[in-house]
Design a protein around this nucleic acid. Structure first.
Length: 512
RNA sequence: UCCCCGAUAGCUCAAUUGGUAGAGCGGGCGGCUGUUAACCGCCAGGUCGUAGGUUCGAGCCCUACUCGGGGAGCCA
């Protein structure tokens, strides 16, 4: 980099004993009379810098003492290994230069509400948690491109403004296109299929828009999706591709972001288990599992666990409240108050789980063949497994028009007649996280496809070009889509998908 | 769209259940040479979301509205 003699915090390893200059922002500072602990962040990491009275010029010492959080500065000092310090290294400060002081930075090192943080998203991105998630996301995106690029896939950029409906007409964002109606893409799949007939193996990767009225921790109206599409592939081939792909992405994150995962409190051990093969269930088998006694027992056991969790939390709250009533030191009272806030929100969450459990049990028990798998059904299946689960061959009626009807190979034991199911699959992330991939073999027969289009009340004229693919050298083909934010949320253990994209767009709300 | 919860200092939350609005963090000043969301002392900081109503008296009760959170349905 030109004209930059500064050292990045990530490069401190191996510079022990050398004098270096860091350029960054003041993340936090603690002063203790004649010694100051300044934590600097520079985008590559955090480093504690020690300013001792007498070892830096007096006016520098004074300036640092009154410097506000997030002020930008350069700090010069000697690197030394120090176990007690974040990152294992610290700087013995010999000099510092303030670039731009910050006053009254709104995001303090204490707790904040989510609305406040989203309104301050432009600043919240600087926080450690958001930084770690951003790093993991970067690795996920890089791994996605790497996997497909290294496996013979060609990148095709599919349009964002489209005139064709890929998924559900109810979740479209309408755009005025010079007086005509157009909308934002819900999937690149249909265009991608065209490209697959030219390049064989292709993928697209970009933002996707769905105007779903979904106010949940799993939904965004704008999210990033990668979609591979392969000519000459069957369902078994797609599953293999998907499990190799996901395992590669997880492996890359484990390799490159271990410290971020640790900071975020992700379950690293369970991620290490993500290796092919994943579990495979047909929809029919999944439906039977849902209705089985095993599932009811599983849910009942879970309910008991939730209840005992609740009791434990309540007991702890009681204990803390009692302690707070007695005479305690101010600092202890504060700690108790903070703990109580956390425990109460945990209690509320557990209460919701207890409330939902019987509903989910009922939904599962009364599950009827032919319905789509609901969110709670997916959660149950996913909770019962420690690796991702493929659920294949859903009823045709519940699925999109372009999915190919079943063949005997995938019909499953239950032996429903083949034409009632389609050759699709969902991939459910383990431990209750739920769906992160949806895909299918595409209908490649002209007549069958036309029939499905008409049956779903779509205007066949709009799909002329799509039907043409079945006219001129049609081949079996298929693909899938993986949601980036959901994947990042799963890997990082982040509860809400909105934290997994820098500037989230949610239902009815764009903050900045 | 439906159900539940919330709105009090810049931020996170209290307020003995209708009787003078409080604490921590953050900010300012001071103290402390190994802190880890440091700690200790002092100071400043409020039209209790908005509009009505009940009452001698409302942060607290009632009605409407606005905004936010959580969940359901649907999905990547």
């Amino acid at each position: 980099m030109p004209n930059n003699t500064n050292t990045y915090i990530a490069e401190l390893k191996g510079k022990t004993g050398q004098e270096v200059t860091l350029a960054g922002w003041l993340y936090n500072s603690r002063a203790s009379g004649k010694i100051q602990f300044l934590i600097i962040r520079d985008g590559t990491g955090l480093c504690q810098c020690i300013a001792e009275y007498g070892k830096v010029p007096d006016e520098v010492f004074d300036k640092l003492k009154h410097l506000g959080q997030e002020s930008s500065l350069t700090v010069t000092g000697v690197v030394r290994a120090e176990e007690r310090s974040v990152g294992g290294f610290e700087l013995a400060v010999t000099g510092a230069e303030i670039i731009s002081p910050a006053v009254d930075y709104p995001i303090t090192p204490k707790a904040h509400g989510i609305d406040f943080l989203l309104k301050n998203r432009h600043l919240h991105l600087r926080s450690q948690r958001q930084w770690c998630i951003g790093k993991v996301r970067h690795t996920v995106v890089d791994a996605i491109r790497r996997f497909f690029n290294d496996n013979g896939f060609t990148l095709i950029d599919t349009p964002i403004l489209t005139g064709i409906i890929g998924e559900d007409a109810g979740s479209l964002f309408e755009v005025d296109y010079f007086g005509e109606s157009a909308h934002l893409t819900q999937t690149g799949q249909l265009h991608l299929e065209c490209a697959a007939m030219s390049f064989g193996r292709v993928y697209c990767f970009g933002p996707t828009f769905r105007a779903e009225k979904s106010k949940t921790r799993r939904h965004l109206t704008e999210f990033w999706m990668v979609e591979p599409e392969v000519a000459f592939i069957d369902l078994a081939g797609l599953l293999e591709l998907a499990e190799n792909f996901v395992s590669f992405v997880v492996g890359q994150v484990l390799e490159k972001n271990e410290s971020e995962l640790k900071t975020l409190g992700a379950n690293i051990e369970s991620l290490k288990k993500i290796q092919p093969p994943f579990y495979r269930l047909t929809y029919t088998e999944a439906a039977e599992i849902l209705k089985s006694k095993k599932t009811q027992d599983f849910l009942a056991a879970q309910l008991n666990e939730f209840k005992s969790q609740k009791q434990q939390i309540e007991k702890k709250i009681g204990e803390l409240e009692n302690e707070a009533k007695g005479s305690v030191k101010q600092w202890r009272a504060d700690k108790i108050a903070a703990e109580l806030i956390e425990l109460r929100s945990e209690l509320e969450e557990t209460g919701t789980k207890i409330e939902n459990n019987p509903k989910h049990a009922k939904l599962a028990a009364e599950f009827e063949w032919g319905k789509d798998l609901g969110g709670s059904d997916e959660t149950i299946i996913s909770l019962m497994h420690n690796k991702p689960v493929f659920v294949t061959c859903y009823p045709k009626e519940a699925k999109a028009f372009y999915m190919k009807a079943d063949s005997p190979r995938f019909a499953g034991e239950a032996g429903r007649s083949n034409d009632k199911v389609v050759l699709n699959f969902d991939m459910l992330a383990p431990a209750g996280f739920g769906e992160i991939i949806g895909g299918s073999v595409r209908e490649d027969d002209y007549e069958m496809l036309l029939e499905r289009i008409n049956k779903q009340g779509l205007n066949a004229e709009n799909y002329d070009w799509y039907l043409d693919l079945r006219k001129y050298g049609s081949v079996p083909h298929g693909g899938f889509g993986l949601g980036v934010e959901r994947t990042v949320a799963w890997l990082t253990g982040e509860k809400h998908i909105r934290q997994c994209i820098a500037f989230p767009r949610m239902m009815d709300k764009i903050y900045i």
